[in-house]
Amino acid sequence: MIGDLLYLIFAMIFGLLLLGIHRKVIARIQRRPGPPVWQEILHALKFSFKSTWIPQTASDTLFVSVVLIAIGIWTAAFFVVLAGGNLLIIFGIYMLHKIVEHGFGLSSGSPYGKFGGVRSVISAASEIPLFVSVAAVVIFTGSLEIGDIVAWQEQAGPLILAVFPAALAMYVVILSKFPFSPFSIVESKEIVSGYKTEHFGVWRAGLEACNGLKTYVLLLTFIAVFFGPLPFLLILLAMILITVSISFICAFSPMLSPFDSVTIQTLFTGLMLIYVVYLGVYG
């Protein structure tokens, strides 16, 4: 149990390390030297040492508490995955992250932040493939508890072989939340830093910590649901491999315009719906 606390802190730092690796790989593909892989960890530390205040125009309670909520929900998600809890809760928290982004963006009163927040709201289409992939998983395993799903895979082998399109859908969902991805319209450069523009100092450090934890939890869920029980070191290795594959996609693709991003995600949702209906009828 105390081990869980240490694991929580490890997860946060390792998630940041994954984001660092992500940046490094993108840079190397684009023939830049790129930052060192631990840059994101340094980033979080650096922000926590910067001076901190609250913008005069901000709604101060919301401005501060949204940071607490951001870390809190992903801490909760971490423990849910660890306890083999309900998959719906994880995905609920994933969708709630949208509200967090919205809160970050709107609470400051800055127009850049506002656009970031509004974009995160209109990209709601990206969340629906998630539920479609849940449906596919349930059709096979008959349960929504991560513990049961992992146990099912011990018997019948990795789920990724059985429901590859569902795994692909969740991969796209994870991709959408990675920085520099074609779908990361919420933090594209024409709106400065998107929803995080006005959160600096300790607030930003908290956000970075949340991002690290979020990356770790999402990848852990993906591995638990589609690859089944793996030893700890193999899980870490799988996370790094998935991150690198995402980095390749990010390095080779431009960022889409908000309209295109939503269109492509909606198309994807449609395809997934057809797939699940097919599974439900013939599976």
């Binding site: 309670t61 919301l62 919205h102 709107l106 927040g117 709201v121 629906i128 949702t269």
Partner: peptide, 25 residues
């Protein structure tokens, strides 16, 4: 939700973040 959200996104122009967030939440 999603397809009908388009009508709602414009509502988020309104100032008053704590209240507008409630719409989306």
């Amino acid at each position: 939700m999603a397809p009908f959200y388009a009508a709602k996104a414009e509502m988020f122009r309104a100032p008053g973040a704590p209240y507008v967030i409630m719409c989306s939440l």
